[in-house]
Amino acid sequence: TETYTFDSEDQAEEFAQRAQKKGYTVEKRKENGKFKVRVE
């Protein structure tokens, strides 16, 4: 499980979609103005 942090929602969304296409489970959340994407 890895967590990635992005400054913009667009970046987080793009990353999450790519990860989902590769078959990963993706969980997105906003925390302290940053966008976190957890991938497993």
Rank of each mutant, 00 (worst) to 15 (best):
A19F: 10
A12C: 05
K30C: 13
D7W: 06
T3E: 14
T3S: 07
S8H: 09
K22E: 15
T1G: 14
T25E: 11
R29Q: 10
F15M: 03
F6I: 00
T1A: 13
D7Y: 07
R18Q: 13
Y4T: 03
S8Y: 10
E14Y: 07
S8R: 09
V26I: 08
D10T: 09
K36T: 14
T3Y: 12
Q11D: 13
A19K: 07
Y24G: 05
K21M: 10
Q17M: 10
T1K: 09
Q17R: 12
D10L: 09
E9M: 06
K30Q: 12
V39D: 01
K22H: 13
A19Q: 10
R18K: 11
S8L: 08
E2V: 15
K22T: 06
A12G: 02
K21F: 06
D10E: 13
K21N: 12
K21D: 14
E27D: 10
A16E: 04
D10G: 08
K22P: 06
T1C: 14
E14G: 05
V26L: 02
Q11T: 07
A19H: 08
A19W: 13
F15W: 04
V37S: 00
E27S: 13
K28S: 11
R29N: 09
R38D: 10
V26T: 09
E27C: 14
E9S: 05
A16Q: 04
E9N: 05
G23L: 02
E31D: 07
K36H: 14
Y24M: 11
R29W: 15
R38N: 08
F35M: 04
K36V: 15
A19P: 00
K36A: 11
F6Y: 02
E2N: 13
Y24R: 06
V37F: 00
D10M: 10
V39M: 04
V26P: 03
T5V: 12
E40D: 11
E14V: 06
K30V: 13
V37C: 02
R29F: 15
K30H: 12
A19I: 09
R29Y: 15
V26N: 02
S8M: 08
T5Q: 07
K28I: 15
V26M: 01
E9G: 04
Y4H: 07
V39Q: 01
K36G: 04
K36I: 15
E27H: 13
T5K: 03
E27Y: 11
E14W: 07
F6N: 00
F15Y: 04
T3K: 03
F6Q: 00
K34H: 08
T1H: 12
S8W: 07
R18L: 12
E31R: 03
K36S: 10
Q20C: 11
E13I: 07
E27I: 12
T3P: 04
R18N: 12
Y4K: 03
F35Y: 11
N32Q: 08
Y4A: 03
E40M: 15
K22N: 14
F35P: 02
R38V: 14
A16P: 00
R29T: 14
Q17T: 10
F15R: 01
N32M: 06
A19V: 10
Q17F: 07
K28V: 15
T25I: 14
Y4L: 04
T25A: 09
G23K: 02
A19D: 01
E14Q: 09
Y4P: 01
T3M: 09
T25R: 11
Y4E: 02
R29L: 15
V39Y: 03
R29P: 01
Q20A: 13
T3F: 11
A19L: 14
F6P: 00
R38C: 12
Q11K: 11
Q17A: 12
A12P: 00
E2T: 14
K21P: 00
D10A: 12
F35N: 02
K30F: 15
V37H: 00
T1Q: 10
K21R: 10
K36E: 12
K30E: 13
V39H: 01
E40T: 15
V37P: 01
R18V: 10
G33V: 01
E31V: 10
R18P: 01
E2M: 15
G33Q: 04
A16I: 11
E40R: 13
T5S: 09
D7R: 03
V39F: 05
V26F: 03
K34V: 10
V37N: 00
V39R: 01
F35V: 06
K21E: 14
E27V: 12
S8K: 07
Q20E: 11
K34Y: 10
T25D: 10
G23H: 03
G33P: 01
R38Q: 10
E2I: 15
E2R: 15
K30A: 11
K28Y: 13
E31G: 03
Q20T: 11
T25S: 10
N32Y: 04
E40Y: 14
Y4I: 04
Y24D: 05
A19S: 05
K28C: 15
A12L: 02
A12V: 02
V37K: 00
K36D: 05
G23R: 02
E13Y: 06
V26S: 03
R18S: 11
E14D: 11
E14R: 09
K34L: 09
F15N: 00
T1L: 10
A19G: 02
T5A: 07
V37E: 00
K30S: 11
E13W: 06
N32D: 13
T3L: 08
Q20N: 07
E31K: 03
Y24K: 08
K34G: 04
K30M: 13
Q20P: 01
R18F: 09
E13T: 08
E13R: 05
F35S: 02
Q11A: 13
V39L: 11
Y24L: 13
D7S: 07
A16V: 09
D10P: 06
R18Y: 09
E14S: 08
V26G: 02
N32K: 07
K21V: 06
Q20W: 06
G33K: 03
V37M: 02
K22F: 12
Y4C: 05
K36L: 15
S8P: 00
N32G: 11
A16M: 13
E9K: 04
A16F: 10
V26R: 00
E40V: 15
F6H: 00
E9A: 08
E14M: 08
E9P: 05
T5D: 07
T1Y: 14
K30P: 07
F6V: 01
D10S: 10
F6A: 00
S8G: 05
K36W: 10
E27L: 08
E13H: 05
D7G: 04
T1M: 12
R29G: 09
T3Q: 06
G33D: 08
E13A: 06
T5W: 15
E27R: 06
E13N: 12
E13Q: 07
T1E: 10
Y24S: 06
A16K: 05
V39I: 14
K30D: 06
K36P: 02
T5N: 04
E9L: 08
K22I: 08
V39E: 00
E31C: 08
K30R: 10
K21I: 07
R38S: 12
E2K: 15
F35L: 03
T3W: 15
T5L: 09
T25Y: 13
E2G: 14
Q11I: 08
A19R: 04
F15G: 01
E13K: 05
Q20F: 07
R38E: 08
V37Q: 00
F15H: 02
E40A: 13
E31Q: 05
E40G: 12
R29H: 12
D7H: 05
R38K: 12
E31S: 05
T1V: 13
G33I: 01
G23F: 03
R18G: 07
Q11F: 06
R18W: 14
E40K: 13
K34T: 06
E14T: 05
N32I: 02
V26D: 02
G33H: 04
R29I: 15
Q20L: 14
A12D: 00
E13L: 07
Q11S: 08
T25P: 07
G33Y: 02
A12T: 01
R18T: 10
D7L: 06
A16Y: 09
F6W: 02
V37D: 00
G23I: 01
Q17L: 09
D7F: 06
Y24E: 04
F35H: 05
Q17D: 10
F35I: 09
R18I: 11
D7I: 06
Q17G: 07
V39T: 04
Y4M: 04
E31A: 05
E14N: 07
K22M: 15
E13F: 06
D10N: 08
D7K: 04
E31M: 05
F15D: 01
V37G: 00
K28T: 15
Y4R: 05
E9R: 04
